[in-house]
Amino acid sequence: MRPLRNPVIQAVLAWLLARWMQFCFTTIRWTHVNQAAAEAVWDSDGGVLCAFWHSRIGLSPACWPLDRAQSPKALISLSPDGQFIARAVALQGFPAVRGSSANKDKADRAKGGSQALRDGLRQLKVGGLAITPDGPRGPARKMAEGTPLLARLSKVPVLLVGLSCNPAIRLNSWDRALLPLPFGRGAIVWDRTDYPEGADPAQVARDWTDRLNAVEAEADALVGLERV
């Protein structure tokens, strides 16, 4: 049995990961770029869709101030690994909306995806929804049409967020995910956008892919992290 499939082990590891992330976030020296765009959205009190690449999910709680921004939830896959991440993120104030899993068959993925879409739209009526547009299995840094679809149906503003830190642990996963290390440099770069009226979702996904890659590359450059 894989360790993360054991609920007791999963709970303990998730608690340890959450505490480690919070310690790192406190000690990292953060640089913020274009934060005024995010603050304007936070001050509006409406729904907001927040997107960052799957590789930066371990940094994502640092970009959302719970004391002033909308109450958030995170769209996380139904896989066992997704459950582990959901626990760690929830311990930091980001309960999960569960999505479809790449480990399930086509029918189950469709059912899970439809439920996630409904739950995501419900959340966007009252607060923030964080999403990784290339998860849970990639391809890395390529946005699927689900994120533009959520933005089009909800009509909420979208924050594309680039996150980085250095030094960091880079996992040997499909997305080369980053985990923070303490006492380093961190960067958060925001890009605010809206779904263009009448636009093709596939084209929007390509445009937003480029913009999200750009803010992440800027964040990496600010902290001196090599792109992979």
Rank of each mutant, 00 (worst) to 15 (best):
I188C: 02
S71Y: 13
A214F: 15
A88D: 02
S101Q: 00
I188D: 03
D45Q: 14
L153Q: 12
R5H: 09
G138Y: 03
R185F: 01
D134I: 04
I9Q: 09
Q70F: 06
D207N: 15
N213T: 08
R141K: 04
R118D: 11
K111I: 03
P61L: 10
V12N: 11
A102P: 06
P148I: 06
L171T: 09
L153N: 10
Y195W: 06
R109S: 15
S60L: 08
V48K: 01
R176D: 08
A177T: 07
N6K: 14
L124W: 01
K104W: 09
D108G: 14
W53G: 00
L212D: 05
A40I: 09
S44L: 06
P182Y: 06
F23S: 13
A168N: 08
L91F: 12
E197R: 15
V228M: 09
L59A: 01
S60C: 13
A102M: 07
R87I: 05
P201V: 13
D134A: 04
A217E: 13
S71K: 14
A187N: 01
C165A: 07
A96K: 00
A177C: 14
P65T: 09
R137M: 08
T31C: 05
R98Y: 10
P95F: 01
A86H: 03
T147C: 09
S44E: 09
L13Y: 09
E218L: 14
R118F: 12
